[in-house]
């Protein structure tokens, strides 16, 4: 038996915002430690890794590890039945091929129960090495989102360059070229507004911009996000959800022919 209750049910909605444009179906790995997911996009260029710790949930019970396959388009439809302030309980009986989602209003005056069929999904599980990155930049997630959106109307690829002075996003297209630099800045009162650059070695990598736009759909999960880069390795874009877990996106760089 698997059962887990989230007081902030809309966390799942926010997570799905970031996932559904990247993957249409995925296996959720349920274990006593929590719920995780790893999936590649259909062109195998990007990979998403989600982790929600068991203690992020109000009541968490997972009697045995199990993978449950879900169509994320269908899951998004089901989540429409949940109000933004509703609690969300997930229940999956080991003997059944479905999951039950229960949405309850905080005042306990509305109760919705939806059952959704699970599916068998063949998926490859990749081992992600624990990289030490050449550069890690933390910045407000809203700022990152705005930058990648703005640049995507100019070009298709983005060159990300980190030096001790800051992080620069560059693109070019028919309209012309654009460079946006964010310098380290820790002068604001709120830490979430800071931009910090942790640099071992300067690094420059080029990526398909549209993936960054998709990753930025996780902006509502966290005020801060981080970009971790190493020479000729996939970038890691992370949105941490406090001590509840994280969503990490990996994107393979474009390599000069």
């Amino acid at each position: 038996m698997f059962e887990a209750k989230l007081i902030q049910g809309n966390l799942i909605k926010k997570i799905m915002e970031g996932l559904k444009d990247l993957v249409t179906e995925a296996n959720f790995d349920l274990s006593p430690g929590g719920v995780s997911l790893q999936a590649m996009d259909s062109s195998h260029v990007a990979l998403v890794a989600l982790m929600l710790r068991g203690d992020a949930f109000e009541n968490y019970r997972c009697d045995r590890p199990r993978s449950i396959g879900m169509n994320l388009v269908n899951l998004s439809k089901v989540l429409k039945c949940a109000g933004n302030d509703d609690t969300m309980t997930l229940k999956a009986d080991d003997t059944q091929n479905n999951i039950t989602l229960v949405f309850e209003s905080q005042a306990e005056d509305k109760y919705a129960e939806v059952q959704m069929e699970l599916m068998d999904i063949d998926s490859e599980h990749l081992g992600i090495p624990d990289n030490t990155y050449d550069a890690i930049v933390k910045m407000p997630s809203a700022q990152f989102s705005q930058i990648v959106k703005d640049l995507s109307s100019i070009g298709d690829t983005v060159t990300v360059s980190v030096t001790k002075d800051g992080i620069t996003f560059s693109t070019s297209g028919d309209v012309g070229t654009a460079h946006i630099t964010c310098k380290q800045n820790t002068s604001m009162e709120k830490e979430a507004d800071h931009t910090t650059v942790n640099l071992e070695h300067p690094v420059t990598l080029t990526f398909a911009l549209r993936y960054f736009v998709t990753f930025a759909k996780s902006t509502s999960l966290s005020h801060q996000m981080s970009i971790s880069l190493s020479k000729e390795l996939p970038v890691m874009v992370e949105y941490a959800m406090g001590d509840m877990g994280h969503i990490r996106f990996y994107l393979a760089p474009k390599i000069d022919d």
């Binding site: 260029v45 992600i128 090495p129 398909a208 990996y250 393979a252 474009k254 390599i255 022919d257």
Partner: peptide
Amino acid sequence: GNSQRSIKSFFLKS
């Protein structure tokens, strides 16, 4: 020009 590599070429199958 730039060529796009697969993410699978970086991460090992586990």
